[in-house]
Nucleic acid binder design. Structure first.
Lengths: 136, 136
DNA sequence: ATGCACCCTGTAGCAACTACAGGGTCAAGC
DNA sequence: GCTTGACCCTGTAGTTGCTACAGGGTGCAT
């Protein structure tokens, strides 16, 4: 299949597919006589793997490691587990951070009663961290 | 005060301060005879405002709008409220997304029982979105 | 006078794309 | 046979919000 078809099949921007090839995340496919990229099923499933991992928030470098693992099925699975576990921890930390931030924002907004900027509680709160109730 | 002092006073990297000046978020300060930047209290509180807003996750462009508002204290406060409310919504959406993602990751990792990559449930799950229980 | 901490400008790098510009290819329809 | 339009190619530059140099100047203490 050509790049446009692969793009539709995986929900990946064409430019992104070429970008992945350029950085060596996807192997360079064969070419047609007209120099068009020509992909097969192996390419499609590799790209699906990459997209799914990106959707789950893995970095390109993490995905590179995961791909290396899946390319060599005799290797131990520990590393995949370690990468995924560390990533899960990061996600949980991010959620915790954002939750503090949400509470702080809600508190700031709740104090706004309209009126002019000189009296604006939002602006005042942003000016002065000491109004905050938690660290962020 | 000189830039190093302002940096320490606000917990902002020196390069970041110069960057904010370059993009027009902070006004260019006066200079000493030796061409060193020389800051006053107004600069420090403006920078604190910026840092605090950044910590709360506002973009540079949002901060620009908030600064414009606070520079003109006769203006209505509605816009500050709108910016903050929209931002809060985005934060809430991000938390919801990350929570789905966390559940999915936890589920994937829970299935890993060690062994070799060919049997790895983590890698299998990443290959195939259809194993997922929710959208992400 | 020489070390050291500090300051300056300007440019390039990071992640992970995205968006062109400027061109080539191919099939359908007139 | 010629145009139209959809598709493809390469290469480069832009995005956000910084961060990290390189290569130089300044100011003060020893």
């Amino acid at each position: 299949m050509k790049i446009g078809e692969l793009s539709r099949a995986t929900g990946t921007n064409i430019e992104t597919i070429r970008y992945y090839e350029r950085i060596g995340l996807l192997p360079a496919p064969g070419r047609t006589a007209a120099n068009y990229r020509s992909y097969g099923d192996a390419h499609r499933s590799r790209l699906s793997f990459v997209r799914h991992s990106r959707d789950l928030g893995f970095t390109i470098e993490e995905i590179r490691s995961l791909l290396d693992l899946s390319d060599d099925p005799t290797r131990e699975c520990d590393e995949a587990d370690r990468i995924a576990t560390r990533h899960l921890e990061q996600v949980e930390e991010k959620i915790a951070q954002l939750s503090l931030l949400r509470d702080e924002l809600a508190r700031i907004i709740g104090r706004c009663r309209g009126g002019i900027a000189a009296d604006c509680r939002v602006i005042e709160a942003l000016s002065d961290h000491s109004h905050c109730e938690n660290a962020h």
